[in-house]
């Protein structure tokens, strides 16, 4: 009996201490981790696809709840007018989720630019989706309500050679971005008005 109590007590105390320590550390590092993510993953992608903006899209960001998930949107100002939003969507790739940052012009609902943020694709094959700007630039100027497909599946997007699954995932992410955009457009329009004041 004594042994049993000792086991329970030791395990409980250890778990409680470990849980407390970790949640404390998590709170302490949360702000810094978000800054790092913006700097290394989302920042470069946003800067690349929102070339020529007059504001800092990373500073002008806001979050809206979409059902259960909270989505982050980055605002781009062209010619002094906040008319572009950038946000991330995901598609299932060969080695896991592929994150795609999509920037949309809200005046004519077309894609301003797209860029891969996070991925775990094969180096040299699928990973070129991120490294080769020619691939993602195919999305530029296309209307967002389209369903994007690679040419093999009867679509317009030329797949990366040797990486059809990756290319399909990027198309799926872009299509998903369209869905998110259509769903949230009223809220986004409201928010953008604040930035135009």
């Amino acid at each position: 009996m004594r042994e049993l109590i000792k086991m329970v007590v030791v395990l409980t105390v250890l778990s409680v201490l470990s849980g407390g320590l970790l949640s404390g550390l998590r709170n302490a590092t949360a702000a810094r981790i978000e800054v790092q993510q913006l700097k290394f993953v989302k920042g470069p992608a946003i800067k690349a696809i929102l070339k020529g903006v007059s504001n800092d899209p990373i500073k002008d960001r806001f979050a809206i709840k979409d059902g259960e998930t909270e989505r982050k949107f980055f605002v781009g100002k062209f010619d002094g007018k906040a008319n572009t939003v950038a946000f991330e969507s995901y598609g299932k790739g060969y080695g896991g989720d592929i994150g795609l940052m999509v920037a949309i012009n809200m005046e004519d609902d077309t894609i301003v630019g797209a860029g891969v943020t996070t991925h775990s694709e094969t180096p040299g094959l699928g990973a070129t989706a991120k490294d080769d700007p020619g691939f993602v630039s195919q999305f530029k100027g296309l209307p967002i309500e389209e369903t994007f497909k690679v040419t093999n599946d009867g679509g317009k997007v030329n797949a990366l050679s040797g990486a059809t699954i990756t290319s399909r995932a990027v198309c799926a992410a872009a299509t998903e971005a369209g869905g998110i955009y259509q769903r949230m457009k009223p809220q986004l329009t409201e928010k953008l008005k604040e930035f135009n004041k």
């Binding site: 250890l14 778990s15 970790l22 810094r32 981790i33």
Partner: peptide, 24 residues
């Protein structure tokens, strides 16, 4: 079980610190 708790705690600490200070 105790060892795993201890190890897992330090692994999560490593993960958090790495995200905060060596993100690349």
């Amino acid at each position: 079980a105790c060892f795993i708790i201890i190890i897992a705690t330090f692994v999560v600490i490593t993960e958090l610190l790495m995200q905060a200070f060596a993100y690349t």
